[in-house]
Design a protein around this nucleic acid. Structure first.
Length: 721
DNA sequence: AAAACATACATTTTT
DNA sequence: TGTATGTTTT
């Protein structure tokens, strides 16, 4: 490593960069220059004589991978090193070793909605009632099993109680369905790869030889399957470098196991551990608040955040009447910043749920502030995009029945539900795929001549497309769009059709970019890559627009000015993520991640009322606001004249809540519809109905949690707000 | 078979 | 609130 480069580093960073052989754990706080350390490490390894070909760096998003490739290139460490996400790495391995993994390399990758169709089918095939065995829950359970590398076969052996045995049946059938369709879901990618590397000695050795140096970023968010895969790959040589921050683990809900990073030193006893506690990103005010906040987590390793910046910054908390006012205030503040010559690309707004972007978007349009909503997968969920992609998917993988059923009558070509079902019946009967059944449509005795002809015509069209699928993707997509009749179906349908056409041309443009960048563009590779696209991948740092994104998508980014909106109890922390302490701590970490993205100023806000799913609800300020340290919530009062006992902020705090008015003592029914009440377990809610029946009065309350309950007044112990 | 309509439903974060 | 499915009409 050039000494000039090394001199830019702190002593700890230098240790992390120059430690070459053997396990290394980098515990890096936010803003500690972790990314720089990783890229320098790659450069240092190459300079020490390691072939780039033998280096494998794993990042959390494709975007991060792309960025790391570029950064490494500027250090002269260009080309050769494999830099990608876990999922992309798995796709590559599975395609390369498809035979050993017992799959076909053209496999489709099924997303959540594809999975849903398959699990529903599986539940049905097992003659189970969808209400007792909700597809979503089954899918969730299967996902958990896959994360633990328990495949359907293994689970069959250990399913003992009734639920497990049923689940086992569904799991087995679900896997059959996927196999018939030559499809893998996200969890399969990890599980199959991990099991392959662990159990197939030849493949394991080959891959360990290939990837002699393993670097894994965001290790705190690895799940068990990723952990096992990484371990299996690194076991022969022990050259594993993991970097991460337990305080930034925010994916527990999808299987991330914080213990992976906590126990790294046990897994690799000879590991060198480097802590990066200095923060080069944020002003002291922001760091103090972040530090105070995260200290409230019980289950954590003590770590300090040491500020190196000495200039002024601020953390402000504001409250607003409703979400419209809140969004407006954000837009106005942004305008003020832009007037001070802050560049829009240096500003970001974070929120807990995607639905909150709407009010912001409207405000930004009103104020004519340039913005980007960082939401990548939404684009791929649009109907027209899914339709066109389904054509391409069927071409790449004719067994993909989910895609096939989607397009067989899109645009309408007179092939109805019954016809499809009969064709499916024929396929099952003859043990062939639906695609194959279509080419033999004239043999389907249950169908009339007209239906047979329509199916044949469709099959012919797909065959024709398939014969042209080699080479570049963009021209192919364009051709299919026109010749399938999709294009025509959108013409003359007004604004909606116009939007659809625009989206399609955006897709084709993106495909052209793929064609240009890929070494060897192919339809299969293209489809597999876009399946792994994430929200965060859509962030365009060079676009000079204010970035609007969820807190999850904000991971790994930094901005001079950060706004976090909707700091309300039930939203942040989210009610579905604060049932137990572990979940609440994760919500706190999520907030921590958001706070520590800010370099100079941090603007936090909440609204007194918020419309959630069409319901106008009274809110309660987030408890997290009180955990930032004293001073932030001092002189907050509700902006509007509020005559009830809900005046000051201090009193809305749970622990010091205003004394409740016992309901039983009230002579007059004081629970007219519209009244806000508090329930001991359900929290704050609004009365929607009141049936006055003396002692047996029933009050119906729609709680902020979204659930509506009818409660017997005398037992409910409601207090008026 | 397809469109129009109605009703139930769930409702975070995402690879 | 919106989606996603089911029902009725054309």
């Amino acid at each position: 490593m050039h000494s000039a480069l090394l001199e830019q580093l702190t002593p700890s960073q230098r240790i992390a960069v120059s430690h070459h052989e053997g396990p290394l754990l980098v515990l890096a706080g936010p803003g500690s220059g972790k990314t720089r350390v990783i890229t320098y490490r790659i450069a240092a390894l190459i300079e020490a004589g390691v072939r780039p070909y033998n280096i494998c760096a794993i990042t959390f998003t494709n975007k991060a991978a792309e960025e790391m490739r570029q950064r490494a290139a500027t250090l002269g460490a260009s080309g050769g090193a494999h830099i990608s996400t876990f999922h992309s790495l798995c796709v590559r391995i599975l395609r390369r070793y498809a035979a050993a993994a017992d799959i076909h390399p053209s496999f489709s990758i099924y997303d959540t909605s594809d999975q849903n169709r398959c699990i529903k089918r599986a539940v049905k095939d097992c003659h189970l009632d969808g209400t007792n065995f909700p597809p979503a829950r089954m899918l969730n359970a299967i996902s958990t099993l896959k994360n633990k590398l328990i495949d359907a076969e293994a689970f069959q052996g250990r399913a003992e109680d009734f639920f497990s045995r049923t689940l086992s049946q569904v799991y087995t059938r679900y896997q059959q369905i996927l196999a018939e369709r030559n499809a893998l879901d996200f969890d399969d990618l990890l599980m199959k790869t991990a099991l392959l590397v662990e159990n197939d000695a030849d493949v394991g050795r080959e891959l360990s030889d290939r990837f002699k140096f393993l670097l894994i970023d965001e290790y705190q968010d690895t799940n068990h399957a990723q952990y096992r895969l990484a371990k299996a790959l690194a076991l022969p040589h022990g050259n594993i470098c993991a970097t991460g921050d337990p305080d930034q683990s925010i994916y527990r809900w999808r299987g991330a196991d914080i213990r992976n990073i906590m126990a790294f030193e046990k897994d690799w006893p000879e590991a060198v551990v480097v802590k990066l506690e200095e923060n080069f990103r944020s002003t002291d005010a922001i760091l103090k608040a972040a530090d105070t906040l995260i200290a409230k987590n019980q289950n954590r390793k003590q770590k300090r955040l040491v500020a190196t910046r000495t200039d002024e910054g601020k953390v402000v908390v504001e409250s607003h009447e409703g979400e419209v006012e809140e969004a407006d205030a954000v837009a106005r503040q942004v305008e003020a910043l832009l007037d001070q010559k802050v560049r829009p690309g240096q500003i970001a707004v974070f929120y807990r749920v995607n639905a909150m972007s709407r009010a912001l978007e409207e405000a930004f349009v009103r104020h004519k502030v340039p913005y980007q909503i960082v939401r990548g997968i939404e684009f791929y969920n649009r109907k027209e995009i899914r339709d066109l992609l389904a054509y391409l998917k069927v071409m790449a993988n004719p067994a993909d029945e989910v895609a096939l059923v989607r397009i067989i009558n899109t645009p309408a070509r007179g092939i109805g539900k019954v016809t499809v079902e009969r064709a499916q019946g024929f396929a099952t009967q003859h043990g062939i795929s639906l695609s194959q059944a279509l080419t033999r449509a004239d043999e389907i005795a249950t169908l009339g001549k007209a239906a047979q002809l329509k199916l044949k015509a469709f099959a012919h069209m797909m065959d024709r497309f398939r014969s042209q699928m080699e080479g570049k993707v963009a021209p192919l997509a364009e051709k299919v769009f026109t010749e399938s009749g999709l294009e025509k179906s959108f013409q003359g349908t007004g604004q909606e059709g116009q939007d659809a056409l625009e989206n399609i041309s955006e897709l084709i443009n993106a495909a052209a970019v793929y064609d240009q960048n890929a070494e060897e563009p192919s339809l299969i590779d293209y489809l597999q890559q876009i399946s792994l696209f994430s929200d965060a991948d859509a962030y365009d740092a060079s676009s000079e627009r204010v970035a609007l994104m969820t807190l999850h998508a904000a991971k790994g980014l930094e901005f001079e000015h950060v706004f976090i909106i909707g700091l309300e109890d039930g939203l942040l922390p989210h009610e579905r993520g604060s049932e137990d302490d572990d979940e609440l701590e994760e919500e706190r970490r999520l907030f921590f991640v958001g706070v520590t993205r800010a370099k100079t100023n941090l603007y936090l806000s909440y609204a007194w009322y918020r419309t959630v799913r069409g319901q106008f609800l009274r809110t309660v300020a987030s408890p997290f606001l009180f955990e930032l340290g004293p001073g932030f919530m001092a002189d907050e009062t509700e902006p509007e004249d509020e005559q009830d006992a809900f005046g000051g902020f201090g009193r809305s705090q749970r622990s010091t809540a205003a004394p409740a008015v016992p309901v039983s003592a009230a002579r007059e029914p004081e629970f007219a519809p519209g009244q806000m009440v508090r329930h001991k377990t359900f929290g704050v809610g609004r009365v929607t109905k009141y049936a006055d029946m003396g002692a047996n009065s029933v009050v119906t309350v729609r709680f902020n949690s979204g659930q509506t309950k009818s409660l017997l007044l005398q037992y409910a112990h409601l207090s008026a707000l």
